[in-house]
Amino acid sequence: MQYTIDHGKFAAEFDFNDLEEPDEDGHGRREHVLRARFGNKQVVYPPLSLRELTLEPPA
């Protein structure tokens, strides 16, 4: 499933083609889907905060 939220509108597409390779991990899958959706455009992620980098057990 690929979905976008753009200007308050939600759109979803279901693609059952063989996009996922058997030896592909989550990161590889994400890159594959990003390239299918946006081509070779640069993807810039916001920096993670220290809180997001710190793993804590659930309370």
Score class of each variant (00 low, 15 high):
residue 1 M to W: 11
residue 1 M to A: 09
residue 3 Y to P: 00
residue 3 Y to N: 02
residue 3 Y to T: 06
residue 3 Y to A: 11
residue 3 Y to G: 09
residue 4 T to E: 14
residue 4 T to S: 12
residue 4 T to M: 10
residue 5 I to K: 05
residue 5 I to H: 05
residue 5 I to M: 11
residue 5 I to C: 09
residue 6 D to L: 01
residue 6 D to V: 02
residue 6 D to E: 12
residue 7 H to P: 00
residue 8 G to Q: 02
residue 8 G to I: 08
residue 8 G to L: 06
residue 9 K to R: 14
residue 10 F to K: 10
residue 11 A to L: 13
residue 11 A to I: 13
residue 11 A to T: 15
residue 12 A to G: 11
residue 13 E to K: 10
residue 14 F to T: 08
residue 14 F to H: 02
residue 15 D to M: 05
residue 15 D to R: 13
residue 16 F to N: 13
residue 16 F to W: 10
residue 17 N to G: 15
residue 17 N to P: 00
residue 17 N to R: 13
residue 18 D to C: 00
residue 19 L to Y: 14
residue 19 L to I: 12
residue 19 L to R: 11
residue 20 E to Y: 08
residue 20 E to W: 03
residue 20 E to D: 01
residue 20 E to P: 01
residue 21 E to P: 00
residue 21 E to N: 06
residue 22 P to Y: 07
residue 23 D to R: 07
residue 23 D to T: 10
residue 23 D to V: 02
residue 24 E to K: 09
residue 24 E to A: 12
residue 24 E to G: 01
residue 25 D to R: 06
residue 26 G to M: 02
residue 26 G to S: 06
residue 28 G to R: 07
residue 28 G to Y: 03
residue 28 G to I: 05
residue 28 G to S: 08
residue 29 R to D: 01
residue 29 R to F: 14
residue 29 R to W: 06
residue 29 R to V: 02
residue 33 V to E: 10
residue 34 L to R: 10
residue 35 R to L: 01
residue 35 R to D: 02
residue 35 R to E: 12
residue 36 A to C: 02
residue 37 R to D: 04
residue 38 F to Y: 15
residue 38 F to L: 12
residue 39 G to M: 12
residue 39 G to W: 09
residue 40 N to Q: 12
residue 42 Q to G: 02
residue 43 V to K: 05
residue 45 Y to G: 01
residue 46 P to V: 08
residue 47 P to G: 01
residue 47 P to K: 01
residue 47 P to D: 10
residue 48 L to T: 03
residue 50 L to V: 14
residue 50 L to Y: 00
residue 51 R to T: 14
residue 52 E to Y: 07
residue 52 E to A: 15
residue 53 L to F: 07
residue 53 L to D: 02
residue 54 T to F: 09
residue 55 L to Y: 02
residue 56 E to F: 04
residue 56 E to W: 06
residue 56 E to C: 04
residue 57 P to I: 07
residue 58 P to M: 02
residue 58 P to C: 01
residue 59 A to W: 10
residue 59 A to C: 03
residue 59 A to Q: 13
